[in-house]
Amino acid sequence: MDRQSVVSSNLAEVGYDPNLETLEVQFKSGGIYQYFNVPAFMYERLMSADSLGRFFNTEIKGHYPEAKV
């Protein structure tokens, strides 16, 4: 999955596959995780958030199934 660099103190890169509704996040610590069943509007909200890390922690993490890549 293609990821793009983001400006965040915690997230390094973010990618999204709308067909699979899968969000992929690479953290600055190096870990890469996929989050499943994430609707496109949540990805759009994440990418337009004032703080990507805060939005991720409150709206994505713990709300969707995840797997370490």
Rank of each mutant, 00 (worst) to 15 (best):
F55E: 04
Q26A: 08
G62I: 05
A12T: 00
E24W: 01
G30Y: 06
T58A: 15
A67M: 12
M47A: 00
F36T: 06
N19R: 10
F36R: 04
Y64C: 06
Y64H: 08
S5F: 09
L11Y: 05
G30H: 11
T22Y: 04
K61A: 00
Y33I: 04
F27T: 05
P39W: 15
D17Q: 15
R54Y: 08
F36Y: 15
V38G: 00
S48N: 15
R54K: 14
E59D: 12
N19W: 02
K68R: 15
G53M: 00
P39I: 15
M42P: 01
F55I: 02
H63Y: 09
V14L: 03
D17P: 07
T22N: 09
M1Y: 12
S5T: 12
A40P: 10
Y64I: 08
Y35P: 01
V6N: 02
L46I: 06
E24T: 00
G53N: 09
M1D: 10
S8Y: 01
D50H: 14
V6K: 06
L52K: 10
S51P: 02
E21T: 13
Q34W: 13
F27K: 08
V6E: 06
I32Y: 09
S8T: 04
H63A: 07
A40M: 14
G53Q: 02
Y35C: 04
N37L: 11
Y35G: 04
L52H: 08
E44H: 10
F56Q: 05
V69L: 13
G30F: 09
F55D: 03
G15P: 07
V69Y: 10
N19K: 13
L20E: 08
K61Y: 02
I60A: 03
E66A: 11
V7I: 10
G31T: 12
K61R: 08
R54G: 04
L11G: 08
A67D: 10
E66M: 12
G31M: 10
R45S: 09
R54I: 09
R45G: 03
N19L: 02
Q4K: 13
L20R: 15
N19Y: 00
R3F: 09
K68T: 04
Y33L: 11
Y35A: 00
L46H: 02
G62H: 06
E21S: 15
E13P: 02
D2E: 13
A67K: 07
F27H: 06
